[in-house]
């Protein structure tokens, strides 16, 4: 059998590999190259060295966006995972209508980011109007608006992953722990959590990267208002690229920095949580 897999390797992998190379790897390399160039269109570039990187790092907007993104990511990763895990625990207890609840909680995830952003903008503005203000009044409103929106969208999805993990915890383990006199909290702490560690790894990874590279929701909900104080990294890159003539390269340089940051953070997280996973 392993021999057969080896034999047919090129047949099954080559097309994907080719597509991956053309549609992902090549543009990626081109992007890195362009970050050292001055260009109007991607086929018309002129080498300028590290000038773009210097400009990117001396750009206040970029640093502010980075700080905003970090704050947002910390808050939303914690809140999404906590809420999703609690919901998953609740919905694996065999409560009546479990399936209905699971579906309902999962549904927000099926709506696109832009649409969600606009809908939540209307809702939040509607609420804030009672107090005579709007979302763009204070950066804090935009921040918490984004957190609420992100939670609403992601909790359902993470919940499904946690449910799958919890259902895979062998009942023998739970029963054995019960026999030994473990309380509910203890079983959660010493049986369930270690056993669903793989799900936690995935969920943390997904929420972390998704929060970090959030774009649509940010664009639709606040578009950086007021005065760019709720701009996240991806939106800032976009604004740099199109906001000033001759700054396309700087936008590209920011994108490369952005890639490196996301890669470092998510790899560290993967390594850290992987270590805590246990085999059943």
């Amino acid at each position: 059998m392993p021999g057969t897999i080896k034999k047919y390797f090129p047949v099954f992998v080559l097309p994907t590999l080719l597509a991956f190379f053309l549609a992902f790897f090549l543009p990626f390399l081109m992007g890195i190259w362009l970050s050292f160039c001055n260009f109007t269109t991607v086929v018309d570039a002129e080498w300028v060295g590290i000038r773009n990187y210097v400009r990117a790092f001396s750009n206040e907007d970029f640093l502010r966006a980075l700080w905003f993104t970090i704050r947002f990511t910390v808050v939303s990763v914690v809140s999404i995972n906590l809420a999703a895990f609690l919901l998953a625990l609740l919905l694996t207890r065999g409560i009546k209508g479990t399936n209905l609840f699971r579906t309902v909680f999962f549904m927000p995830n099926l709506i696109g980011g832009i649409v969600l952003g606009y809908i939540w903008m209307l809702i939040l503005n509607g609420i804030l109007a009672k107090f005579g203000v709007s979302l763009t009044y204070d950066p804090r409103y935009g921040f918490w608006g984004l957190v609420i929106l992100m939670n609403w969208q992601m909790i359902g999805y993470m919940m499904i992953i946690y449910i799958a993990g919890i259902q895979n915890v062998p009942t023998e383990l739970q029963e054995a722990a019960k026999m030994d006199g473990a309380t509910g909290m203890q079983r959660l702490r010493y049986v369930t959590v270690p056993m669903v560690m793989p799900s936690i790894t995935i969920c943390l990874f997904l929420t972390l990267t998704n929060s970090f590279k959030l774009f649509d929701q940010n664009l639709a909900l606040t578009n950086g208002a007021p005065s760019g104080q709720t701009t996240m990294l991806a939106l800032d890159i976009y604004n740099t690229f199109y906001g000033r003539i001759g700054w396309e390269g700087v936008g590209q340089a920011k994108a490369v920095i952005f890639f490196i940051i996301v890669a470092i953070i998510s790899f560290t997280q993967l390594v850290l949580t992987r270590r805590r996973e246990v085999e059943s």
Binding site: V133, T136, Y137, P226, S227, G228, N239, G243, R244
Partner: peptide, 20 residues
């Protein structure tokens, strides 16, 4: 000078309307 300029002026005007 640029779209960024217009956006920043627009944002400042908005904050003026909000009294900030």
């Amino acid at each position: 000078p640029s779209q960024t300029f217009k956006d920043k002026l627009g944002a400042a005007l908005l904050e003026y309307t909000q009294g900030r």
